[in-house]
Amino acid sequence: MHEFHIVVCMKVVPKAEEIRVDPESLLLDRENARSEINPPDMNAIEHALRIKDQCRARVSILSMGPPLFESILRVGLAMGADDFYLLSDRAFAGADTLATTYTLARGIDKIGDVDLVICGEESADGATGQVPAGIAEWLGWPQVTLATEFQLSDDYTVCTARREIPGGYEVHRVKLPAVFSVKTASNEPRFMDFDRKPWAMEEAGVIVWSRSDIEVEDDLIGLKGSPTIVSGLEQAETRARQQHMLEGDPESIAAQLAEILAPFHTRN
């Protein structure tokens, strides 16, 4: 029988507070930043592993990035994933959403017989949230974004997913294979299983595919395959709080506060 196969797309991001823009080159200085697994992707793998807890399923990690991703994403193997595919090639570098989703989709094709692709809601660095839809489009599969719960049909061909929308929820039923993104913080990612950890960190073989291993058109990958360019980059004001003290009589303070709060109205 076909083994139910879930691919979780994951990436590594530098810790946000350590990112600096080099004032001269206007490039991001990621070199000196500590890295971690993109936090929303931790929710994605937890959802995949919960499905695996309930039925016989294989969970594979798929990532695109430099070799340094390897040691960090092995954490996913220690959490319970079975395989780890890393798409790594200098030619993949500089990819925007279009090239990234193309490359990941070709990786999923190459893995083959995938039933479910689960992604995090968005990446902490780019925060585009467009990757799940892009992958789904390249693959021609249905998509459900912002999912919080999954329920598979008895024959594993249909998935019912609850998704979160502003102010409420929806329940969708889609035929598999399909692509899902999961709502950030929709679960509490399990810690590493220390019985698996030695295997995961040392022994497990990571399947590294370069450009020639997956069937890609050179025009569609990396910088060449990316329509968007960065024409300017600046360091936003740091998270340090402004600590601006408002002065005046109660009336005037209320008026100042009203002005500050007005943009935050979330309802009409």
């Binding site: 810790k15 507070e17 500590r34 971690e36 697994i37 954490v75 810690f191």
Partner: peptide, 17 residues
Amino acid sequence: LWSVYWNGNPLSQPPSE
């Protein structure tokens, strides 16, 4: 535990601080 792992402290605070 995850915070200890990624941040080196249990309080979810940035290691750089």
